[in-house]
Amino acid sequence: MNSPVARRHPAALLLLLLGALAVVGTIYALVQTSTEARAAGAPSSQTQVEQGRTLYLEGCSSCHGLAGEGTSVAPSLIGAGAASTHFQVSTGRMPMAQPSVQVERKDPVYDAEQTAALAAYVASLGPGPASPTAEQLDTTNADLARGGELFRTNCAQCHNFAGRGAALTEGKYAPTLMDSTPQQVWEAMLTGPQNMPVFGDGTLNEEDKQDILKYVEHLQAQTQPGGLSLGSFGPVAEGAFLFTLGLGLMAAAAIWIGAKVR
């Protein structure tokens, strides 16, 4: 009865666990608040560029270099400009999870304010394309029909006539435009991310870009009058899908008709 085990109170283990949890929780809360304090307090104490620099050094410099000069794995950001930075960060393409043939859209890591700070910092490295203003993105007076014509001439070859995206070479693809904001579409045209060609203001001026934006907005808001669209990939792919599905259903029906009845 006097063994060491028996001397412990039955609740000792529980208390120990609670204590450990409390210690870990307190430390975590302390670290958490200090990070938040730094992020939230930044704009008041530092300029936007300096906040962007802090974020850059934490999240981007390991690949793009301490001063945005680029490394063997990532390009230089000097002259990349705010438009390119906002596009890459707000679509979640940067920071990249791992280098691959296709940089994929994902949930953005930084919020709008942080993205703006990063864009301001990259813009401060060297002159580059700027993000569009709210006035430039206003499509109220844009020409939808002309936008469609410009879209089919300049965009549809890769992004598909309905803006749903399509394949490129060697595993690359042009992404769908259904999730893109007008600012992202504008910035993509202006900067040509990844393999997309650059559609500068010299060849597609502001008016042209506004027309295209209006058409993309129209595509995004469009209802499919004929029922389910099957992705708008075109008659061959959709026909093949329906052919396969139809044959499958007919085979199932034939099996049911011919099955032995109990």
Binding site: N154, G192, P197, V198, F199, G200, G202, T203
Partner: peptide
């Protein structure tokens, strides 16, 4: 000068 590098 209207055709940027990488432009089409």
């Amino acid at each position: 000068e209207d055709v940027p590098l990488g432009g089409l």
